[in-house]
Amino acid sequence: MYVWVRVVIALSVCLALGGLFVHAEVTEDQWHPYPDAEELAAEYDSYVGQDVMIFGTVTEHSEGGMEIMAESDGTSITLQVTGTETAVEPGGVVQVYGTLEPGQRITAERIEVVNSSRWAELYKYGASVVGALGFLLLFFRYWRLNRDTWTLEARDG
């Protein structure tokens, strides 16, 4: 098959994928029913009293609560989380589900610890890097790029 035909198909798929990226952002309220950090920072009062679920990095931990920093699209907001005995050291990441209260507070109904510390996050990314490198080595053991046709072909034909 001509290279240009494949390029046209690839560009068409990229266009469809781009359309999906835009559509998903426009319709975010329909598939993600909770406000994100950017929305909370912009219009906090309009969400008070609503259920929220937010990911945040623990910045401070105290008895019966914690302070988290949530971030999305380059905007961050600091929230006090009350009603929890969950102990997470600063730098850890939690998911908080609860009710948004005035004064940048959340009364937690449920908290899940995503990364218990910075090390947990490093472990996750470390395992992913090992996976990516291992996969590339394995893949190019069986496949190679044919520079004449610009296609991937099996090494053993």
Binding site: A10, V13, L20, V22, A24, E153
Partner: peptide, 28 residues
């Protein structure tokens, strides 16, 4: 200058489309 999120990459639609992109790199 358009609303944008990468989130669809970890959805069924994203997988079906990106799989198409990978496919055309192989022999027909």
């Amino acid at each position: 200058g358009l609303p944008f999120t990468y989130a669809p990459l970890s959805t069924l639609g994203g997988v079906l489309l990106f799989a198409g992109l990978i496919t055309v790199v192989f022999e027909r």
